[in-house]
Amino acid sequence: MTRKILMHVGPETIDYDILLGGIKGDVGFTSKEFVDAMSFSLKFLRKLMGVGESYQPFIIPGGGTSAMESVTSLLRKGDKVLVVSNGVFGNRWIDIFSRYPVNVKALKAKAGYYVKPEEIEEEVKKDHYTMVTMTHVETSTGVREPIAEVTKRIRDYVDLIVVDGVASVGGEEVRAEDWKIDVFLTASQKAIGTPPGAGLLVLSENATKRLGEDNIAGYYLNLKNWIGVMQSMEKGKASYFSTLPVHLILMIKKAFELIETEGIGNRIRRHEIVSSAIRKGIEALGLEIVAKTPEAYSNTVTGVMLKKVNPNDVLSMSLTEGIEFAPGVHPDLGGKYFRIGHMGWVNINDVISAIAVIERVLSKLGEPINFGEGVKAVQEYLINGISISSSNIAP
């Protein structure tokens, strides 16, 4: 069987200790083992999100989209929502809110760019919005929004600020409380590095107070129905609304233990090193990155533009070479790019393998590149550009 490195945009390659942590045949949703795992995970989620005791953590079934839709629990009929979208997954907020009795307006950026903080500030000064939603890292392009700056500019003008951190939490700096963000959410399968199946989010005290009977959410994703479960579980007491993904949460607990051992700061630094090395290699090959400006580069996803060859051919041939990358999904760049996911348990040796495969595959397919320069640039960066420690090499 051919060994494979998964450098998709989620799920990522999963540490075997995490997978083994969920292989339990006799754990019920009221068992002490599960309740303890849930309690630990909820408490650690606060650390990961950079918040204190005043924020309420949730781990709910589903994924990033379920976490996104659950924020309708904070809205009432007729509320105004401003969606800040940098791509496909920013637009998902529009698709979600359009199913509910709220008024939605969107500010959109061109592919590879982000909506400027001053544009968002200008809009919220013109009209009062109950909620503004942003995407920290747009998975479709790898573009990072400067959410701390945006929040600083708009905090006094809106009731709720919500950030989709599906492709950022665990790989980017997140200080939700310091930045005065009301809701920060993510999913289990990306930079946290566990299988898909859970949405994770924290709510500020301001947001939690809005979980009233008159919210517009449905039943399953209504956080009002989940909050009692979360509060009881965190205190070590079994509770039930609907069955949680028991075995996944056991894996999340193990992942959080490994993140705690590595150190959140070390983990973010590792992601910074890996992502920078990826981009050094891509640029040395003479290829263009989808994110148009360096300040918009993310630690977790890099989109790679192609000049000549079909990206689907690149993906299929790379897979035969042992690495799985992700297709491009932004409609404005259709057939022009592919994506590299570099998050979770990725290390610097994975980078060298990825760039080497990209070089070989593109050369075989006839893409005009600077053959041999990609791996060389990565190696030079790793030798000269950073201080390599054990935490940088492997989690």
Rank of each mutant, 00 (worst) to 15 (best):
G344F: 01
I227A: 00
L203E: 04
Y55S: 02
L19C: 10
I60Y: 02
K292Q: 15
I18Q: 05
N349R: 14
E33K: 12
D214I: 08
S387N: 14
T65L: 11
T13C: 08
V375S: 00
G64N: 04
G197K: 06
K235I: 06
V169F: 00
E205Q: 14
R267E: 02
I96K: 07
E213I: 13
V229Q: 01
K125Q: 14
Y129S: 09
F44H: 06
S232Q: 13
N370A: 11
A356L: 09
A111T: 12
M317A: 11
E324C: 09
V9D: 00
I94Q: 09
A284G: 07
G265F: 06
T302V: 13
M1W: 07
L315P: 00
D127F: 13
K116S: 14
L6K: 12
N312R: 12
T194H: 01
F241I: 13
V301L: 01
I154E: 07
V229F: 02
V274P: 02
L6F: 11
L19F: 11
R360F: 08
K253Y: 09
N206T: 14
P117S: 09
I369W: 03
D95I: 06
P117Q: 07
G335I: 10
A187R: 01
N347C: 10
I23K: 11
L319P: 01
S353W: 09
V314F: 03
R269N: 12
A354W: 02
L287Y: 06
S316A: 13
E324V: 13
W226P: 08
G28P: 03
F89K: 04
N215L: 05
A191R: 04
E262M: 12
A217Q: 08
V163R: 08
